[in-house]
Simulated assay, not measured.
Amino acid sequence: EIDWFRLMLVYGVPVGIPHMFFMVPWHWDLSGILGMMTLCVIVGSLFGSFIAIWLLVRAVGYVIGYPINYMIKSIKGKN
């Protein structure tokens, strides 16, 4: 059985790194800072998973659309 939440976290970490640390408290104690950093990592990786899914859909669209566009141009004689 697949744990979808963990899969989304692992899949979204590389893309969501810029969105991770939107709030890092400096005047809290250690447990508060670690808790907030953990929350930022989870939220950033979830954002990253949705961004990565969108990038994958867009890449598949380019891969499928380019040959079709090339065939249409070659059929019309514009190539």
Results as ranks from 00 to 15, higher is better:
Val10Trp: 14
Tyr11Val: 10
Val41Glu: 03
Val41Trp: 11
Leu39Gln: 05
Leu7Gly: 04
Ile33Cys: 04
Met8His: 10
Trp26Cys: 01
Val15Ala: 12
Pro25Trp: 07
Phe5Leu: 15
Ile17His: 02
Val41Gly: 05
His19Trp: 12
Leu39Trp: 09
Met23Asp: 13
Pro14Val: 04
Phe22Pro: 00
Met20Asp: 00
Trp26Thr: 13
Gly12Arg: 02
Ile17Phe: 07
Val24Ala: 07
Phe21Arg: 03
Trp4Gln: 10
Thr38Ala: 15
Gly12Lys: 06
Gly12Asn: 12
Met23Ala: 09
Pro25Ser: 08
His27Cys: 02
Ile42His: 02
Tyr11Glu: 04
Thr38Trp: 09
Phe5Pro: 01
Val24Ser: 07
Phe5Gln: 12
Ile17Glu: 02
Met23Ser: 11
Ser31Thr: 10
Trp4Tyr: 14
Cys40Glu: 11
Pro25Arg: 13
Ile17Ser: 00
Asp3Gln: 09
Thr38Pro: 01
Leu7His: 10
His19Val: 02
Trp4Pro: 04
Phe5His: 06
His27Pro: 00
Trp28Val: 08
Thr38Asn: 07
Thr38Met: 12
Leu30Ser: 08
Val24Asn: 08
Phe5Glu: 13
Leu34Gln: 08
Ile33Gly: 03
Gly35Val: 09
Gly35Glu: 04
Met20Trp: 05
Met36Arg: 15
Gly32Leu: 09
Asp29Thr: 06
Met8Gly: 04
Met36Asn: 11
Arg6Ile: 12
Ser31Phe: 14
Met20His: 01
Val10Met: 07
His19Lys: 09
Trp28Tyr: 11
Val24Pro: 04
Leu9Thr: 03
Met8Ser: 13
Leu30Ala: 13
Leu9Arg: 03
Leu39Ser: 09
Met36Pro: 01
Val24Tyr: 07
Met37Gly: 03
Leu30Asp: 11
Asp3Pro: 05
His19Met: 12
Trp4Ala: 14
Trp4Ile: 14
Val13Ala: 14
Pro18Cys: 02
Val24Arg: 11
Arg6Leu: 15
Pro25Glu: 09
Gly12Trp: 05
Phe21Glu: 00
Val10Asp: 07
Gly32Lys: 12
Ile33Phe: 04
Pro18Phe: 01
Leu30Arg: 14
Pro25Ala: 08
Asp29Leu: 10
Pro18Tyr: 00
Trp26Val: 08
Leu34Tyr: 10
Cys40Met: 14
His19Gln: 12
Val24Gln: 05
Asp29Ile: 06
Asp29Pro: 07
Ile42Gly: 00
Gly12Gln: 05
Met37Arg: 10
Gly12Ile: 11
Cys40Pro: 04
Phe22His: 10
Met37Ile: 05
Leu7Ile: 11
Phe21Leu: 14
Ile42Ser: 00
Phe21Trp: 13
